[in-house]
Amino acid sequence: MSQKLRLAVFKFASCDGCQLSLLNAEDELLALAEQVEIAHFAEASSLLGAGPFDIALVEGSITTAHDAERIQQVRQSAKTLITIGACATSGGIQALRNWGDHEEFLRIVYPRPEYIESLATSTPISAHVPVDFELQGCPVNTGQLVGILADVLHQRQIRVPNHSVCRTCKLQGVVCVAVARGVPCLGPITQAGCGALCPRFDRGCYGCFGPVVQANAESLTDWLVQREHQSPAVLVPLLRNFNAQAPAFQASGDRLAAGEMNRGDMP
């Protein structure tokens, strides 16, 4: 019998919701505990084991110099490093600071800003260390999280279906809110995993799972502006929320904010 794999969960700048998704896996949690040694998981136990770890789940983004150091140690301690959630994968909602004045935020929010040591930017884990797999979502889908842990356990390629949210809608018979109602929806360019929660409740997708692979955000935003007459005042916040800094969303958000639109002669 081989030794159990050692699992660690690390938190950086985040809301803890993705770790909670692991705790929420109630049916699978006992089975998981049988398969792996949960060696370091502050949200579950105050017994914090030291490395090395076979699997490190990393939640949160890098927003302080201390965390920029700490992620290096985590990487060195872990054989497989998987980021979980929008913060770790694209910088999270706190990456909105990247478009603002960090010093000014500190002055406005904190009575004694000199006590705060934070970086001017929020950056994803992959900007600091090599990442083996990025699980998208805000928060991540529990089933997908358990699925990729099973992949590691059984030495399979770590994978999550990389469909758009549209396919989830269509499989469930959900009528397209964009086409039938003119609701701006990021579903066509957003990674599936949420179960199309917003469109099922008549809302447009706001991309909390981040861009799907090869997301064509430029074409979608061109259409929404030119044909659906949506304003950048609506679309920029739609693209700049939990995954504002994900490259596909960032490029289109910046382009809209700057008033640059390609292909004004769209057929």
Binding site: A31, L149, S164, C166, N216, E218
Partner: peptide
């Protein structure tokens, strides 16, 4: 450059027939 590759056209198409067969296991297989 315009296509979103979102799969909507194929999902609504009455003739598109492609499917994917996959195995889903629980954690201990």
């Amino acid at each position: 450059e315009r296509c979103l590759s979102c799969t909507n056209c194929t999902m609504v198409c009455p003739t598109c027939f492609c499917s994917h067969v996959t195995e889903v296991s629980d954690l201990d297989q």
